[in-house]
Every structure is written in structure tokens, then in C-alpha cells.
């Protein structure tokens, strides 16, 4: 059983990535290219459906599918690749995605979670071997944000306005 951070809580993951056990899960995360290649199959799928996007994918291209998706997982292959932050931000604020926005991949560590949360990620699946409890604490490491719109930081601890 995998545990993840969801809105500052450590919870058992109720989602399964395609290819993981158990295949028959009721909530499945499918890579974008598989979703595209096999559109009909996934349209008929009656469980909850999520998609996993890679750093080079454009969130705008997902616009039509988003209403049918309960989760978008954004891949951070390493800590240095910051494209996922923009993808998350666009999914939330431009495309209005309200489902679970999850950061996944080897680049997701406690040192990134504060930034991730502020780009709209409400779920964090840490890279292998990472300490969940430490990551949970890191979410509240900063009590101040210089940018407006930071979830979890009171307005009077933010700068600028939207």
C-alpha cells in the first residue's frame, strides 16, 4: 500500500498507476499517450480515471478531457525540471481543473513540496525512499509568501494582490 500526502494529511493512496497491481482497481491513472491511443477503451471505463502527463505535454491539449478526469498526475522526472510547476498552475487557474492535482516522479521531495502546494498541487506522491512525515512538515516550513494566491498562507502574510 502506498501512502501519499493529500491536503497536508498522510493518507493511503486509493489510486493505482496503469501497470501496477491490482489491475482491476476502481481508480486508475493512465499515461496521456495511452489515453490518446486507446480513447474508446477509456471512454467506456466505469471506474474513476486519472491521467499522467509528462513535462513536455501542453495542459491546454487536455481541455476537452478534463471534465471526465478526476485526477491529473504531473511528472517531475528530476528536481531540476520545473515545467510541471507551470503545468500545475495552468491546470488550476486557466483550465479550472478542480479534481486532484498530483505531483509524481523522482524529482518530488520534501524540498519541493512548499512550491508544489502553491502551484495548486493538492496531492504529493513522493519519490522512492522519501520521508512522508518530513515532507508533511515541510509544507508549513514557510509562513510567508511573496506572491499572492498562496493557498494555506493567510492573506496578511502574502505580498501583492491579484
Amino acid at each position: 500500500m502506498r501512502y501519499i500526502l493529500r491536503r497536508r494529511e498522510i493518507v493511503a493512496d486509493d489510486w493505482v498507476h496503469l501497470g501496477e497491481d491490482p489491475e482491476g482497481a476502481a481508480a486508475l491513472i493512465v499515461p496521456l499517450e495511452r489515453l490518446r491511443a486507446d480513447g474508446a477503451r477509456w471512454a467506456a471505463w466505469c471506474g474513476r480515471l486519472g491521467v499522467r502527463i509528462a513535462p513536455g505535454d501542453a495542459p491546454e491539449d487536455l481541455a476537452a478531457q478534463l471534465p471526465h478526469l478526476a485526477l491529473v498526475a504531473v511528472e517531475f522526472p528530476n528536481a531540476g525540471d520545473g515545467r510541471g510547476y507551470s503545468q500545475g498552475r495552468l491546470l488550476r487557474s486557466r483550465l479550472g481543473f478542480r479534481g486532484e492535482l498530483r505531483a509524481v516522479g523522482a524529482g518530488v521531495k520534501r524540498d519541493q513540496v512548499f512550491l508544489l502546494a502553491r502551484c495548486g498541487f493538492d496531492a504529493i506522491e513522493l519519490g522512492a525512499g522519501e520521508d512522508l512525515e518530513a515532507a508533511r512538515r515541510a509544507l508549513t516550513r514557510y509562513t510567508v509568501a511573496y506572491q499572492p494566491g498562496a493557498a494555506g498562507i493567510p492573506l496578511e502574510r502574502q505580498r501583492f494582490t491579484l
Binding site: 528536481a79 520545473g82 510547476y85 512550491l115 502551484c119 514557510y142 509568501a145 511573496y146 498562496a150
Partner: peptide
Amino acid sequence: RQWATLHPEFTYL
């Protein structure tokens, strides 16, 4: 300076 400081979206350019 303030806006750029630990900007959540632009810290890993």
C-alpha cells in the same frame, strides 16, 4: 526582488 523570491512557479527554470 520580492516577487521573484522563492517564486513557486519559476524556481526551477
